[in-house]
């Protein structure tokens, strides 16, 4: 279970998160939508203390940290409760695919090398990369790299996996592959928080959709509620603009 209370974060006096309250149950898949600059990435990064909130309470699993008084040790402890999948993959360039996945197991979880390798191979099989174990990231396509990124997170068996726009750096024809991998692990009951612009993913896979704007959660609900009966004007405008881009563009092209 994840619990956030009053999370605030500013960069050079500019408030980016203005008091976020959020509760996520075990096994829930939550997607976060919102315009660029609304604080989605910052919220994810505050969850694992890559960014230290200025104020607020973060709880993941049975670890609770008060951001204002957080010690290094506490931050490391709460970070170990989660794993992150990055927009630009951020794979360890000097490690092979299987080593990328093993790294966290060996160093942070103190798993023996042999066991770590076995577990990593199993997870890589799940994301369809058994044939690339000994490749370096530079030898993989973007889609394959992101699947390594997902395997690296998944192998840690964390309380929650945080995805920050996992497909937005990919060529369009590779997006589907990565999304279907994320879908399949969502169905295994792993708690996930996903920032995405893939509306179909938000609609089909998530249990709950949050809409963020200007550092606050403007509205939240089931995909049905958000996509078909948004209460807030800001949410409706955003969805209209997004769907305008994705659905109506081809139509316009036809008309022209």
């Amino acid at each position: 279970m994840i619990y956030l209370k009053g999370i605030k974060k500013s960069f050079n006096q500019l408030p980016v998160l203005k008091g976020i309250n959020l509760k996520i149950e075990k096994g829930e898949v939550v997607t976060i939508l919102g315009p660029s600059g609304s604080g989605k990435t910052t919220l994810l990064r505050c969850l694992n203390f890559l960014e230290k909130p200025n104020a607020g309470l973060v709880q993941i699993g049975n670890i609770i940290v008060d951001a204002e008084k957080a010690t290094k040790k506490e931050m490391l402890a709460i970070r170990k409760q989660s794993a992150m999948v990055f927009q630009h993959y951020n794979l360890f360039a000097h490690k092979t695919v299987v080593e990328n996945v093993m790294e966290g197991l060996i160093v942070a979880k103190k798993v023996k090398k042999k066991d770590a390798r076995q577990q990593s191979e199993r997870v890589l099989d799940k994301v369809g990369l058994s044939d690339k174990l000994d490749h370096y990231p530079s030898q993989l396509s973007g889609g394959q790299q992101q699947r390594v990124g997902i395997a690296r997170a998944l192998a840690l068996n964390p309380e929650v996996i945080l995805f920050d726009e996992p497909t937005s750096a990919l060529d369009p024809e590779l997006v589907g592959d990565v999304l279907s991998v994320i879908k399949s692990i969502a169905q295994e009951g792993i708690t996930m928080v996903v920032v995405t612009h893939e509306m179909s993913f938000a609609r089909e896979v998530s249990n709950r959709v949050l809409f963020m704007d200007e550092g606050v959660i403007v509205e939240e609900g089931t995909p049905l509620e958000i996509f078909h009966a948004a209460k807030e004007e800001r949410t409706r405008r955003f969805l209209q603009r997004i769907s305008g881009e994705t659905y109506f563009l081809p139509l316009k092209e036809q008309v022209n």
Partner: peptide, 27 residues
Amino acid sequence: VSNGQLEAAYSVGMTKFQAMIRIILPQ
């Protein structure tokens, strides 16, 4: 060495020191 790799190292639970020794310095 890209800052992203450092953050990835932290995100899998490494300390500053471990990230430096295992990820950043070798490269």
